[in-house]
């Protein structure tokens, strides 16, 4: 298998190369990082709903849509990318999704251990240090290949990450930033800023290639040949085109920010006949947390919304309907024009 140990590359190539290799059906490991920052959205996301495009334009931050799932992320040169491309039926690739991630995250875990970061695997695809995530990963089937992509996070710009996301109000943005800070760590945060002098890009890429060789066999040195360069050029015309980046997916009524496995921040809006309902909440390990309900609907008694928040706090997602039914069963409680179904629309992922 080939190893493309490329170091810093133009931001577009940091994405296009693995798409090109996958479409060419060439198995390889790419180790690289972008020379300049950009935002990368998941395959099915609607960029106008997810990204503050005006902020990105003003700050010269381009946006790219990858053919891999997941959410919008801010990427820059302080994140070292690993991109493994395998044939769809490669004997190296376990069929089960969890086994696939477990196998191919092991080299990354080993690198973290070698440099003194106690990272561990959390199924299905997270790499954690304690309760904090330290690497983002995803898989996409591209052409007849599987592309497994992820990053070694030397340092992270939490401020810009929270700024590039399209979030309707600043309060929620501040909360998103704090939650990401609480739930995403980096190598420099774990080992100190000075550690980055020792663990520079070349050293870490060498460590990663050695660890991947243990499970994939020896690599040969990959060069950007004419076929690969042509494919990248061809992809530039499609994947950097506005039609691709702005393509619409399903309608979203709010925002879901996945912070790590088991923690999502949700903001929902729904127009019921009795008025607009807005909710902000977290889903922590399948349970509601920090729920906040607002809107322009009428309710009686005036403490009803607070009471509902109290009842819903800590509730499992499967119990929400029952809790709401208990609220509606009490004849003292009145929310004209807002049904249980309306609430179910706003208190969901």
């Amino acid at each position: 298998m080939k190893l493309y140990n490329l170091g810093k590359v133009p931001w577009q190539e940091s994405q296009l190369i693995y798409h090109a290799l996958a479409l060419c059906g060439e198995e390889a490991l790419c180790l690289l990082s972008p020379a300049s920052p950009y935002v990368c959205i998941g395959f099915h996301q609607d960029v106008t709903q997810e990204v503050d495009l005006e902020y990105c334009r003003q700050n010269h931050i381009p946006v790219f849509r990858r053919e891999v799932g997941g959410g919008a992320v801010f990427l820059d040169g302080r994140q070292l990318f690993f991109q493994l491309i395998l044939h769809r039926n490669s004997p190296h690739a376990p069929k089960r999704i969890d086994a696939f991630y477990r196998k191919f995250l092991q080299p990354i875990i080993n690198v973290h251990h070698k440099i003194g970061v106690p990272a561990s695997f959390k199924p299905v695809n997270d790499l954690m240090v304690g309760q904090r995530k330290i690497s983002g990963t995803g898989v996409g089937e591209i052409g007849d290949s599987i592309a497994f992509v992820g990053n070694l996070i030397l340092d992270f710009d939490y401020e810009t990450m929270s700024r590039v996301l399209k979030i309707p109000d600043e309060k929620f943005r501040d909360k998103v930033k704090k939650t990401i800070e609480e739930n995403l760590t980096t190598i420099s945060r774990e080992l100190g800023q000075e550690s980055l002098n020792r663990w520079d890009e070349k050293t870490l890429n060498d460590l990663m290639s050695k660890e991947f060789e243990k499970i994939l066999g020896p690599f040969t040195f990959g060069r950007m040949d004419a076929v690969l360069i042509d494919k990248i050029q061809e992809l530039k015309t499609t994947m950097l085109d506005d039609g691709w980046i702005y393509k619409k997916a399903g309608q979203l009524t709010g925002r879901v920010v996945k912070v790590r496995a088991g923690l999502e921040m949700v903001q929902r809006m729904h127009k019921a006949s009795g008025g607009l309902i807005k909710t902000n909440f977290e889903i922590r390990e399948g349970k509601l947390a920090n729920i906040n309900i607002s809107g322009d609907f009428f309710c009686f008694p005036h403490t009803l919304v607070q009471d509902m928040e109290k009842h819903l706090e800590g509730a499992a997602l499967g119990d929400i309907r029952e809790i709401l039914m208990a609220v509606y069963d009490d004849p003292m409680n009145q929310i004209p024009g807002v049904t249980i179904e309306d609430w179910m629309m706003t208190i969901k992922k």
Binding site: G42, H44, G69, N125
Partner: peptide, 30 residues
């Protein structure tokens, strides 16, 4: 696992046996 997205291609799309025509995403895998 949890399916988070299903692509609905345009009506009229020609399908060829064994060829891909849509995507489905589980959050962990596209």
């Amino acid at each position: 696992g949890d399916i988070v997205f299903v692509k609905i291609p345009f009506v009229g799309k020609k399908l060829q046996t064994g060829k891909k025509f849509a995507q489905v995403e589980s959050g962990k895998w596209l």
